[in-house]
Simulated assay, not measured.
Amino acid sequence: MKKLFLAGLLVVGTLLTGCGQEKSTVVQVKGSDTILNVTQGIAENFMEKNPKAKIAVTGGGSGVGISSLLNKTTDIAMASRSMKQSEIDKARELGIGIEEVVLGFDGITLIVNNDNPVKDLDSVTLGKIFRGEITNWKEVGGEDAKIVALSRDSSSGTHEFFKEHIIRGGEKNNLEYGAETLYMPSNEAIKQEVKSNKYAIGYIGMGYMDNTVHSLSVDGVTPSKENVANKTYPIAREVYWYAPSEREGVIKELVDFAISENGQEIVEKEGFIKR
């Protein structure tokens, strides 16, 4: 775990329902769609072992989760990107102590339709495709057809990570997704569109990958668990829970369980790499 900061007193445990009222007994976990399923799995397993515990897990994107944490409307934020400096500064201003907990590792997987003959693209070419500079599959060894580029929406941490590392090539610049990029609300939505559209390309968390679509090698490296673990796959990243720095009760027990051997088995079962 990495402590980002600790400022002032932070009331932990559950959310206040109002001034002078009792606290809710439901622990709220909100945020990243990428790690929604694995977090649900962890929560369900934890509640089976702790029948009195009540945990509600909802998605919405990394940005939604982090803003909810800052607004004190969730207890734990799920995120597929690191907190931005502006979010860290906001937490400090509010006197909120937050700890970054690495839940596991993910490889952002580029997917195409199973009938698409293109099987490998390099990072530079991917950047050109998603910036709208390459618009026809024939330019990259495919059919003479328009490329349909799919991205997660701007509330997604995966959207931000992909923009930083592929659209902008890991450099500080103002490059953006192409004007004709289609923005999708979830990993599953991207996968379903690629499955039904022969000329679509999109990206998903590796935990969502199945044989209904085809994964691309990036820079000649396949998005396998082994290649994410040994850091040879070029667009791998950590995925996080952001939790109170000072915590107790169910929140502390849930975080401890998530990073325990049992919790990490669930992370691996859901298609991610253990921390």
Rank of each mutant, 00 (worst) to 15 (best):
S186Y: 02
T158Y: 04
V213P: 02
H159F: 11
E160P: 00
Q192S: 11
S196P: 00
K163E: 12
M184I: 13
T212H: 07
G207S: 06
T212L: 08
I167W: 05
S196K: 06
E180K: 08
S186F: 09
M184R: 11
Y203C: 09
T181N: 06
N197F: 03
N211C: 02
K163Q: 11
I190L: 09
N174T: 14
Q192K: 15
E164V: 10
V218S: 01
K163F: 02
G205T: 08
S156F: 03
Y208M: 12
I201L: 12
D210F: 11
V218T: 13
R168N: 13
H165D: 07
R168M: 07
N197L: 06
G207R: 08
S156K: 04
N197R: 01
N211R: 10
E160R: 01
E176K: 07
E193D: 03
A189P: 10
A179G: 00
M206T: 14
Y199N: 15
K163N: 08
E160Y: 10
Y183V: 06
V213S: 00
M206F: 06
M184C: 13
P185H: 10
G169T: 06
E176S: 07
Y199I: 12
V194M: 12
L175F: 08
F162E: 01
N197I: 03
S215Q: 09
K198F: 02
P185Q: 09
I166R: 07
G157T: 14
K163T: 15
D210Y: 06
L182E: 12
I166T: 13
L175Q: 04
I166H: 05
N187S: 12
R168G: 04
V213L: 05
K198C: 00
K172P: 02
G178W: 04
Y203G: 00
A179K: 14
E164D: 05
E171C: 01
E160F: 12
S196T: 13
E176W: 02
K195I: 10
I201N: 07
Y199C: 06
S196L: 05
H165A: 04
H165R: 15
G169Y: 03
N187P: 11
T181I: 14
S217G: 05
Y208E: 15
Y177C: 06
G157H: 02
L216A: 04
K198T: 10
M206R: 10
H214R: 14
S217P: 02
D210Q: 11
L216H: 05
K191L: 15
M209T: 15
S156P: 13
G205W: 09
I204C: 08
S186M: 09
S217A: 14
S186D: 08
M209H: 13
K198L: 04
E171N: 06
V194H: 08
Y177T: 14
A179Y: 01
R168A: 09
T181L: 05
S196E: 12
H159N: 14
G157Y: 03
G207K: 10
I201S: 10
L216Q: 01
I201M: 13
A189S: 15
S217N: 13
V194G: 07
A189R: 12
E176Y: 01
Y199P: 05
Y208K: 11
G157P: 09
S217D: 11
P185F: 01
E180M: 02
E180Y: 09
E164F: 03
T181D: 04
E160N: 01
G157S: 08
T181V: 15
S156Q: 05
I201H: 03
Y199E: 14
V213N: 00
